[in-house]
Write a protein that binds this DNA or RNA. Structure first.
Lengths: 177, 177
DNA sequence: CGCAATTCAGTTGTGCACAATTCAATGCCG
DNA sequence: CGGCATTGAATTGTGCACAACTGAATTGCG
């Protein structure tokens, strides 16, 4: 029966001046939550790694291909918006997909700063083999669809809250200096 | 109103012989789920990165320190069990924590294969500054505690299901060869 | 006992994540 | 039009994740 001393939300216990028993417990709880999310993300990656080996894709490469299978062609910047990734991650990743013959890259003619990634015939054809991926994942885990969709919604809200919180913390940090 | 054609669980649609409209939709849904989990994990890391900069810790280093703050001393192997990490990740990470003066490492006398990580005085003292980390995260995001604990439980079940599924897929792969 | 299989930490190599920087192309404002 | 801030991609450097491998210590079994 842990945390019975806790009123409602974590945010309620914000102005404690010194370390208390509650602090110790929240530090432990923090570890459990961080660990759970981290571990789930990596476990997901681990299962996909095995399933995707047939296709010659890594998990992040698969995510990029999913975006391109849906849209056919897209600027690097917009891929980054979809996947929450920056150019430092995407540039080398896209270069590897290009080396594998799955995509091509070309500068936009309208805006020469922008680079558009486009599926090659081979890249588009790979989709036919990829459609079995969700089946294999589903078969291996027996997920309940409604619960998974619900989990996705919660995680998306969590991500939005976390991203919104970063500027606050950076402001607080700047104020200290 | 998507996926109305779907009966109950993803696992039900396992024996489709060829790609259907449903396959296309599940491929899209798969992307949304993978992306949500990935993005949430990285967003978490991003907020912690900002908050932990004061302590001079990265997010994975913080997770290791949380384990050690709770247990004081622990073999590398057991840290790996707690955090679901292998020696290839932990060895260099622990070496950096040692270089920072937060932990020491020594071979166990009972079993010389095992290396035990132990908090230094400085490492133990850092805990006093770390107790404010959950407060700052909570204050920045305003999380509801009960919901977070529920999410943690779901994620832990997910991780267990995913980890259990990997050997099945590896067996399937071996059978193809 | 003796040796084969296992266990544990560490190393190597590949790829992802992200901060910080660079550079060219673009947009904007006077 | 000219100059200056902004945007987009790429690069560099650091650190994490993991597969594959090495080598030493231990365990277990004949």
């Amino acid at each position: 029966m842990p945390f019975k001393f806790c009123p409602g939300t974590l945010a309620d216990m914000t102005e404690q001046p010194t370390a208390t028993h509650a602090d110790q417990d929240f530090l432990r709880l923090d570890g459990q939550i961080c660990f759970a999310l981290n571990a789930a993300s990596r476990a997901f990656g681990g299962l996909y790694r095995v399933v995707l080996k047939d296709l010659g894709l890594t998990y992040p490469q698969y995510l990029v291909m999913l975006v391109l299978w849906e849209h056919g062609e897209m600027p690097v910047k917009e891929i980054g918006r979809h996947l929450r990734l920056d150019s430092g991650t995407l540039s080398p990743l896209l270069k590897r997909l290009e080396a594998a013959g799955l995509i091509s890259r070309e500068r936009s003619t309208q805006d020469e700063r922008s680079v558009r990634a486009r599926l090659t015939g081979e890249g588009a054809a790979l989709r036919a083999r990829a459609v079995e991926v969700p089946r294999r994942i589903a078969a291996a885990t027996g997920f309940d669809l409604t619960e998974v969709v619900d989990l996705q919604a919660r995680l998306s809200r969590l991500t939005a809250a976390l991203d919104a919180a970063v500027p606050m913390e950076e402001a607080r940090e700047a104020q200290e200096a």
